Simulated assay, not measured.
Amino acid sequence: MKTIIPLKKLNESTLDIMIDKMNDGFVEKIGREITKSHRNDFCACILPNKGKGTFFVDFKEVYLSSGFMLFLYPGQVQRIIKTQKIEGWVLFFDHNLIDDYSRSVLEESLYQGPVLTLSKDQKKWLFQLMELLYDTSIVNDMSTFHKPAIKSIVVSLIYKITSIYQASVTQDTKQYSIRSNTIVAAFRKLLRDNFKEVKSPAEYAALMNLSLGYLNDTLKMVTGNTVSYSIQEEAIREAQRLLWYSDLSIKEIASTIGFDDPKYFSRIFSKITNKSPVQFRQSHLSE
């Protein structure tokens, strides 16, 4: 059987939510699971108060320390490289707890990066809510209201994270009109959901009831990339994940992400990454 990227799921007994105190001991305790490359089918938030950590998320090293929060979305390939005297909170929760609007904002973390900078007040608020969530989760004194109480706290935390992230994205995109930013966000969501099946720029424009020229001009103005390049980039990002941590053949990977011709897939991969699929796979064999 072909090896694919391991997928971690939340234990059913955790109410689709798990919160724990983050420290070096916690990392050592579940080290085998999180220091090896994997995907989650849930969201993860890591909020340190002391120390620091180095993580590997979708082929990039990210660094975490006090004053920052790491937010990981389902599907990203990730692992912990190391932690140094880290203390804080780690929260896992089912992505279905996120409403549609918040999801559209938080999914931008796949493009903008998983680390959020926090102000002093934002950090204080988040830590207070994490403590309340932890205390509520370990003391079941509300009978049938226990599960709803926990979920309501997590939903509040989701909205807070969404507002912080939205503010950071708005700062980067405020030079463009609301309509342009809305079109780009809608296109990216449509692309994430359909990149394996839909490869034609014209089809995406039609699905959005826009002309291809208008969609292309808007996307290029905001992101610097054309519709065609964005489609290829999304597919190649998934191909990189499969090449990096699976033993699927290049032909199988090409087919998985919607390319009927492996040679054409290899040409597109080389154009996007400046490496052939074989070279990319070999560069990560030492992981």
Rank of each mutant, 00 (worst) to 15 (best):
G25N: 13
N40F: 11
Y245G: 01
F68P: 01
L191T: 00
N23Y: 12
S230A: 13
L7M: 11
H146C: 04
D141A: 12
I5C: 10
T117D: 11
S152W: 05
Y159H: 14
L129D: 12
Y229R: 11
S156E: 00
I236Q: 00
S283R: 08
S270W: 06
N11I: 07
L116Y: 03
L212W: 02
Q78E: 08
K50E: 13
C45D: 03
D16V: 00
Y229H: 13
I86N: 03
L106Y: 03
V278A: 06
Q76Y: 05
L212E: 14
R103G: 00
I80N: 09
S230D: 08
M18W: 15
T226Y: 03
K29P: 07
I158M: 03
S143W: 15
N96Q: 10
E107C: 05
T162L: 01
A202E: 01
D100Y: 09
I150S: 00
H284R: 12
L47A: 05
Y101I: 07
M130T: 00
K36S: 12
S168N: 10
A205G: 02
R79W: 04
L97H: 08
T54A: 09
K36L: 05
V154M: 04
K263F: 04
D193F: 08
K189M: 07
S163A: 09
K271W: 10
F127R: 05
L110D: 08
R39F: 11
A44F: 06
L47W: 05
Q128N: 15
E203G: 01
L126P: 04
K50L: 08
Y264K: 08
K52F: 06
I17R: 04
T136V: 10
